[in-house]
Write a protein that binds this DNA or RNA. Structure first.
Lengths: 86, 86
DNA sequence: TTATTATTTAGATATTTGTCTAATTATATA
DNA sequence: TATATAATTAGACAAATATCTAAATAATAA
C-alpha cells in the first residue's frame, strides 16, 4: 500500500491517471498534456508503474501506457474498514 | 484532495487512523503506541487534522482525537470515477 | 549506414518532509 | 503559589522528492 499512497500523492500523477481513464496513451502523448519536461513525466510514469496503477507495453518506438484499476480495490477495501467502526 | 492524499502518504499516520478506528484517544495515548517522540506525533496529528481525517477536542489538560470518515467519501468517489472508464 | 524520433537513465539541485531536542503554553494539584 | 503533567511550537537537520539538462538507448526512415 505504501507505493500506492505515494503514487497518488502528487497532482501530476493523479492527472496522468485521469488522462488514462479515457484511453491508452503513449509517453509522448502524456507528456504533451503537461508543461513539464519529458524526463520528469517519465519519472512519474515509473512511480505509477511501481504502484501497479498503470502498465506499459512497447509498440515500436512508442511505449503505450494504460490504467490498471485492479489495485484500487485494495484501497477501497482499506477505506471501507475505516468507515465500519468496530 | 491534495491534503488528504498527503496525509495518507505516511505509515505512522495510517496507523494513527487505524488506532482511532476503534476508539477516541488523547495525544498521549496515541504517542504511547509509537517509539517516536511526542512532538513528532503531534506533527502527524496536525497533518491529519488539516486533511480533516481527524478532529480534536480539548478536555482539561488532554486533547482528545477522533476519526472523521466523512472526508473519505470524496476519496471513494474519486476512485470510483476511475474504475468506471468512460 | 546515417539521421531522426521516442523514451529512459544519469546526475545535479532546490524544496519538502519526517524526525529530533529544547522551549513554550495550558491545565491540574500540592 | 509553586510544581507537575499534557500537549504544542520553534528551530535544526538528514533524507526523500520533484524537477531540470545532458547523455544514452532503441527503433524508424532516408
Amino acid at each position: 500500500m505504501n507505493s500506492l499512497f505515494k503514487a497518488l500523492n502528487d497532482d501530476t500523477r493523479r492527472q496522468i491517471i485521469e488522462l488514462l481513464k479515457d484511453r491508452d496513451l503513449n509517453a509522448g502523448e502524456i507528456a504533451a498534456h503537461f508543461e513539464m519536461s519529458k524526463p520528469s513525466i517519465s519519472h512519474h510514469l515509473d512511480i505509477l508503474k511501481r504502484a501497479e496503477l498503470i502498465s506499459s507495453e512497447k509498440k515500436g518506438q512508442f511505449v503505450n501506457y494504460s490504467l490498471n484499476t485492479t489495485i484500487l480495490e485494495d484501497l477501497i477495501s482499506w477505506i471501507l474498514t475505516l468507515k465500519n467502526k468496530s
